Amino acid sequence: MEQEQVNGLIEKYIAGKASDAELLQLNDWYRSIAYRDAEYPDMELLVQQRMLSRLEQEIKPVRKIKISMRRLAVAASVLCCLGLAVYFYKAWYKPSDRGTTLTSNDIEPGGNKAVLTLAGGKKIDLSGTKSGIVINVADLHYNDGTKVGPGLTRLPAQKEMLLSTPEGGTYQVILPDSTRVWLNAASSLKFPATFSGLDSRKVELNGEAYFEVAKLVRRSKTSGETRVPFFVISKGQEVEVLGTHFNINAYSDQASTKTSLLEGLVRIKSENGNALLKPGQQAISMASGIELLSGDAEDAIAWKNGYFMFDNEDLASVMQKLCRWYGVKVNYEEEAVKNVKYYGTISRFEKISKVLTKLETTGNLKFEVKGKTVNVSLK
């Protein structure tokens, strides 16, 4: 949309003459610039809910509420968006010495880094110019078809292999059954070189991974066609996959394990309970049992799509993610700052200075990078 058209819509909105269609057009324009490359943290839904609540209280007649609620919702959404756009513009472009300090001690984001450990203990540093590896009994190759390296002969059948990523590393793997797995930073996946002849497919996860499980059936003259189940073992829980796309967050330094389902069905078993997970649900496994939550499971795979996404997330959890991705440690000058809440979407491919600057603009906190440590304090 041309700038003159945008200006005209804004003028109509301010004058109270914009139609519902024009309000929606203005809202779409805002989204197209605000979400581009995840440049601005997003608090839109929370602010809109508060705004609608206040406006509804001011409208007394019931008939008027019924007639104007749609217009009210659209107007509140646009008002919220425009207000946030102005706020983040001022916050982002305001000159500050803090940006200079953070930039002078900058840290690059993570990238494609992983080590493949073969059954005999041999370790292979995988190429950082490639994004994934394909496991095949006959050979090993990257997902662009190139060989992993010379001297690699046929893999021992049913011998376990280990793919691991360091802090600041991520990698993809296509397992022998064509199941696709994306590993997040500081994670590992153990799996056999082949699933041939096995009654079930079992892998072990430490850390976080997103799975797209391939359907595998076995045919025999006596029993006909039977499905070969897929299991993921991770930190005290077992997930049985019934053909699905899902994410598991099972880092050892976290109190709970989170399983988020996007498609299909999974059955979760642990010492403290069992649960059947449906699309859009998240299961949180704790010592006290398994809790099911409804929500947008897409949030759980923001990391796979190249974003940090924070939805009412406390700073301690935010920094935990940043530490794994940028390979840093964090020092809190006051314990209370750990509870500061954040909403927002930020690209994982920015340098740490840009991420921390954005966190500063949306909170009353100050960040300072010294070597590989981030100090956090109140402004």
Score class of each variant (00 low, 15 high):
G344P: 05
E333Y: 11
A302I: 06
G306I: 00
V340S: 14
K351F: 12
A316L: 09
L356E: 12
Y332H: 00
N331S: 15
W303T: 13
G344A: 04
A316P: 06
T361F: 12
M309Y: 13
K338E: 10
I346S: 00
N331T: 12
N305F: 03
S317A: 06
T345G: 04
G306T: 04
V340I: 13
N339A: 15
Q320V: 06
I301D: 11
C323V: 00
G327N: 02
K358Q: 10
A316V: 03
L359I: 08
V337M: 05
A336P: 09
V318E: 01
T357N: 13
E360S: 14
N305L: 05
V318L: 03
M319K: 08
V355T: 02
L356M: 09
D311G: 11
A302C: 03
N312V: 03
I352Y: 00
S353W: 08
G306P: 00
A300T: 08
L315C: 01
A336N: 14
T357W: 15
A302K: 08
V328C: 06
R324S: 01
Y343C: 09
K329N: 12
K321A: 00
G306S: 04
F310A: 02
T357Y: 15
Y342S: 03
N305Y: 08
Y307A: 04
K338T: 08
L356C: 10
V340R: 15
T362K: 14
Y307G: 04
E335I: 06
K341T: 11
V330E: 05
F310Y: 08
L356F: 11
D311A: 13
S317M: 00
I346E: 07
I301N: 11
N312D: 15
G306M: 03
K321G: 02
W303Y: 14
Y307E: 02
K338Y: 11
